[in-house]
């Protein structure tokens, strides 16, 4: 039992110490050896949990995701939300988690290319996020909030991912009071996405074109 506790402690300690080092120095420690020396621990302990600094950071971001999910699950109203509202809650909570770690997040985002859709440090985050979004999207389809379309609807979660990256970038560069610009960006971009995922004129258009084509009614 004590062992177990110590394990998680070290895992946590490496992670926290690493982030702290990063935001203090603006760059990684030179080697794992040097990093562990400062923590007064043998580097083999580090390798028990992580195989590189990169894997530490992936873990950091995965923790962000878990914190958000945890906060959502604790909320008594959350389960009664629509898919759109669940998703919004996720983004707003994520921004709150970001705020606790602003220096780090800004630092990381500074080095990713604007067009990159797969920042390496968010790899584990993205995997978990994809599972979760597919889940709530399915709920949405079931409740008719979202329309299922051949070929496209299996890609909906990708769109949400791109939006999440967009919102994160807006937040990193947001200089408005209380990050109000980010709030507006979240509201408006989500409203647009969910409006597009709803049954609407596009479906009618496709339906009509299909009809016209199949029956040569043109």
């Amino acid at each position: 039992m004590t062992d177990q506790k110590e394990n998680t402690d070290w895992k946590e300690r490496f992670k926290n110490a690493f982030v702290l080092y990063l935001i203090r120095n603006g760059e990684r420690p030179v080697t794992v050896f040097k990093f562990c020396e400062e923590l007064e621990v043998d580097e083999s302990v580090f390798y028990e949990y992580y195989n590189s600094f990169r894997s530490v950071e992936k873990e950091v971001w995965l923790t962000f995701y878990e914190e958000v999910k945890h906060a959502l699950d604790r909320d008594s109203e959350y389960s009664s939300y629509s898919t759109h509202e669940k998703y919004l809650s996720f983004l707003y909570t994520l921004i709150e988690v970001y705020k606790q770690n602003r220096s780090y997040v800004v630092l990381r985002y500074a080095e990713v290319d604007r067009r990159s859709l797969r920042p390496w440090f968010m790899e584990s985050f993205r995997e978990e996020f994809a599972i979760w979004t597919k889940e709530i999207l399915d709920e949405g389809i079931e409740s008719k909030e979202i329309v299922s379309r051949p070929l496209i609807s299996s890609k909906y979660h990708e769109a949400l991912w791109v939006q999440l990256l967009y919102v994160s970038r807006v937040w990193v560069n947001d200089e408005s009071e209380d990050f109000q610009v980010t709030d507006a960006a979240v509201e408006k971009s989500s409203a647009l996405l969910f409006e597009l995922m709803k049954s609407g004129p596009v479906d009618l258009l496709i339906d009509f074109v299909k009809f016209a084509y199949q029956n040569k009614a043109y």
């Binding site: 759109h84 509202e85 809650s89 707003y92 209380d178 509201e187």
Partner: peptide
């Protein structure tokens, strides 16, 4: 403007 979503209202209150 389109109406504020409820999660944003919640967020504003939390803040």
């Amino acid at each position: 403007a389109p109406p504020l979503s409820y999660p944003l209202v919640v967020k504003t209150f939390r803040q």
